[in-house]
Nucleic acid binder design. Structure first.
Lengths: 185, 185
DNA sequence: AGGGCCATGTAATAAGTTACATGATTTT
DNA sequence: AAAATCATGTAACTTATTACATGGCCCT
């Protein structure tokens, strides 16, 4: 059985949040959904076209005076049904595996010096710190800016997931750096 | 710039741990590296062939009496060099993004009932618990079974990363279930 | 004049999954 | 006799990344 593609449903879902162009959908995914999703234009634009062809969404060309024209997408009743069906459908395939190049290299670290390993973990930590403050910023944006309150709750829930895991990873970095440095003495 | 493929280096790395056939490499990745990597035979066998063609590994057919024949791969000096270079090379592209279908659906949960959302998070929690105990088992295997001690340290480090993050996700589940249930009263 | 943001799209390539194909041996 | 494990491999397909292409507006 082929796993169902999720891209179209994300786009449908975003249409219900007042996000209506391919460009702004990418922007929202890169911020509000960045802790659990990513996407490229190469996926978005063909998917939007397909949704329209299948009658799950409608397009309207909108002329803007100060900015380039844009295509505004809206969900049709058929699209709404599809979204709800997708939400209700069970999640197959178990938990996702996060491929992590830092851990991969640490796994084989006996082929390098302890110092090099420590440097790498410190770099990893830095990246995690950046991510953490980014998430904090996004949290602020969601609570302060224009997000409809029905959505807000759930957006904050998922974001907290990201914050918690990042925080746990940061703890791990400190522990491991500590243990590796102790050895050197 | 195209991102460097990592599959060949994992396979080279595994050759240094006494793991020498495509079949056993897949097994090891599915256990010892499962918290940060996954792979299919469709990637492994072609990659092993390519490594041999490029002179980074050598093959020997080995006849077994009780089991089917197998191909034993060993790293060449050239392969060793490549592995070390890969280890020393900087990690580009920032942190990985873990696509998470559970969070994705929770993100759009205002289109379903609170009860349904709670059920989904409970399912997620169950999966995480299973994962947690699996990691605990693997930890036992690493400490008790035949892993060379130079490798053992680093394998346990990475595994603890998995345990920590899973544990953090479990905490998150409890918190969110709690908050959603409070609302219902 | 140059950089950055807004905006849409395609084509080539890479990466990864799944199903298929084969076949021996061991355990239940 | 069937199921599980050991063992290797390929072909078709899906998914995703990257680079390319275009072009206007705004700000400095």
């Amino acid at each position: 059985m082929a796993k169902e593609a999720q891209t179209p449903f994300i786009l449908l879902g975003l249409m219900t949040t007042g996000c209506s162009t391919g460009y702004s959908m990418k922007q929202l995914i890169d911020t509000g959904l960045s802790h659990f999703w990513k996407i490229s234009y190469g996926q978005i634009y063909p998917a939007l076209k397909k949704l329209t062809d299948e009658g799950l969404a409608e397009v309207q060309q909108e002329t803007q005076e100060d900015k380039p024209d844009k295509k505004v997408y809206n969900m049709t009743p058929k699209g709404k049904k599809a979204l709800e069906q997708w939400l209700a459908s069970p999640i197959e395939g178990g938990l996702p595996v996060q491929k992590n190049e830092w851990l991969l290299k640490l796994f084989f670290s006996r082929h390098e010096s302890t110092e090099t390993a420590i440097v790498k973990i410190k770099q990893y930590k830095e990246q995690l710190q950046q991510r953490f403050s980014l998430y904090k910023q996004i949290e602020k944006m969601i609570t302060e800016c224009a997000v409809r309150s029905e959505d807000e709750r759930f957006w904050l829930f998922t974001l907290r997931h990201g914050l918690k895991l990042t925080s746990a990873a940061l703890d791990w970095c400190d522990e491991v750096i500590d243990e590796l440095q102790k050895e050197g003495e």
